[in-house]
Design a protein around this nucleic acid. Structure first.
Lengths: 162, 162
DNA sequence: ACGCAATAGTTGCGACCGCAAGGAATTCTG
DNA sequence: CAGAATTCCTTGCGGTCGCAACTATTGCGT
């Protein structure tokens, strides 16, 4: 995705191309994520959910009173407002989520996890976690896991600080 | 994305939920990738390209004679045949790529990187690599980089072997 | 050589998502 | 306290993608 002729010269062209190790890591990062995402998606479809649906249900399940403001949900899921509106539309149509206007602020709508939504989530969760394990976690030793955590949080803090 | 009540019991419910460390890594993996992808996308749009377009151009640039069979390109980019057809449609419309029937096998179409496509790629590449550096690589020490490479290739080989 | 399966590519269709615009409610400001 | 700015959500629109269906070409088995 980013190979170019190594230009090791002094400063004529001041681009820092990726060296071999960096390149390997970058490509691996992209590929690993692609394959994990695909596996997760496939697993969830067997429970009649998309990965996006699962994300909504999981967030709602962890929220107090199983309800969240649309805007909070959208930012938690890195989704645009319109994207979330339509995703929730679909979940409402399936009876997994219901909408409820907030009493404090009449601009906001709350998405509420229904009992049926909770059941679907609990049915899908074990398979989902299993997929994450088989595709990712179980291939790492405890040490690798800790190193990976350090590396990733370093990246997170770095990009967050910007 | 996968928190559920810890069920540490003997074997009534044999689901291996993620422990704290595993959970942190999994969430970090998802978040880091989301933010990197977003940054890459944003950077490339300033050069009039999408991430998908860049992927096609980069692969063609690295290929012998700057041309590749559609099916090889599709699998390299984890794209469905129809998805690639339309993406290439767009690139042809921009004059960055041209189609050419293969002489050996009249089923296949070759996607060929045009001179203009090559220029666009070379204009966009430094910014792209810079973004990858700023968002990812530069936040890792050499040791972290090596550890990350080990961990990711372990995951790759594991999922590949399946 | 004939026929059948496999492979390559395109197209119709539906699903998803982000941007821009709009409407309603709240907050800020003078 | 009135008007402007902001926040929250929804809708129209366009772009992207995968699946299924279809055509064309090649390869295989007998």
């Amino acid at each position: 995705m980013a190979t170019r002729d190594q230009q090791q010269s002094v400063a004529v062209d001041e681009v820092n191309w990726l060296d071999e190790e960096e390149m390997v890591v970058w490509r691996a990062m992209v590929d690993v994520n692609a394959s994990i995402q695909a596996a997760v998606e496939e697993d969830l479809t067997s429970h009649g959910l998309t990965a996006g649906d699962y994300g909504v249900l999981a967030r709602l399940s962890d929220a107090p009173d199983r309800r969240l403001r649309m805007c909070d949900l959208a930012s938690a899921l890195h989704l645009s407002p319109s994207g979330l509106t339509r995703r929730v539309d679909g979940l409402v149509k399936q009876g997994l989520v219901s909408r409820e206007p907030s009493e404090n602020d009449r601009r906001v709508m709350l998405a509420v996890l229904s009992d049926e939504g909770n059941v679907r989530l609990r049915n899908a969760a074990p398979g989902h976690v299993g997929t994450v394990r088989r595709q990712f976690i179980d291939h790492l030793s405890r040490t690798q896991l800790r190193n990976l955590a350090n590396a990733l949080t370093a990246v997170q803090c770095g990009t967050l600080a910007e």
